[in-house]
Amino acid sequence: MEPILTIQGLKKQYSAGTWGLNGIELTVQPGEFIAVIGPSGAGKSTLLRCMNRLIEPTEGSVTFLGEDVVHANKRQLRSIRARMGMIFQHYNLVYRSSVLENVLHGRLGYIGSLAGMLGRYPEADKEEAIALLQKVGLENEVYKRADELSGGQKQRVGVCRALAQKPSLILADEPIASLDPKSSKTVMDAIHTNCREQEIACLVNLHQVDYAKAYATRIVGIKAGRVVFDGPVEQLTSDITQYLYEGQEHEMFHKAAI
């Protein structure tokens, strides 16, 4: 099967001296649900943002459905981004707009500048957006303003926005880091179920190793900008976890406490 995403020798240098990524090799097959774990500052967010070039990689290649992401021109990049959904830790919603409008933003990659500015979304898109909201249990929040929602609800809107793109790949950067355990489970379930059903590959950064183990089909451990573990959940022994977070136990504890 042709892979969804292939990353080769990917490097990112921020300013002279700071390397965010240091030669990442990774291949994502269709339908995979990959959890990326690693200590703070390992480069997890940088990796995800290099996939859709919210951050420009310094070196290496990213291939998405056979297309060269790194050298894509403006139009190609737009089309690539339209087919990659992204879920953010801080939800990144447009809080003054309605919940429905926020979900419809997922369709912006498919319509022109003017139509988008005027909010002319096809009726079919609206129906599907509402269906998505119903599916994650937000049928009563459709016309609320996004800032009236709770954190868990906001993130479910974020999930719906990504799904509205009908993507082949979803990138989720710590989608549950700001949520309580109950909301975390709802959100992870929403991502997981939909990716399963619609055969969307998913790359999700997680701080909680137990969540990673519970949902992922495959785990990728990153440390200092390099892949140091890549394998099925069963192979992630406590030794490896310990090595991954070496010298960071204090921080793990701190993160868990938040």
Partner: peptide
């Protein structure tokens, strides 16, 4: 970031993201 990540144009970022905000 949000509007760019869905493949929106510069005009989308302005009109749909920043102006309402």
């Amino acid at each position: 970031e949000a509007i760019r990540s869905v493949g929106g144009t510069w005009w989308h970022v302005i009109a749909k993201g920043l102006l309402p905000t």
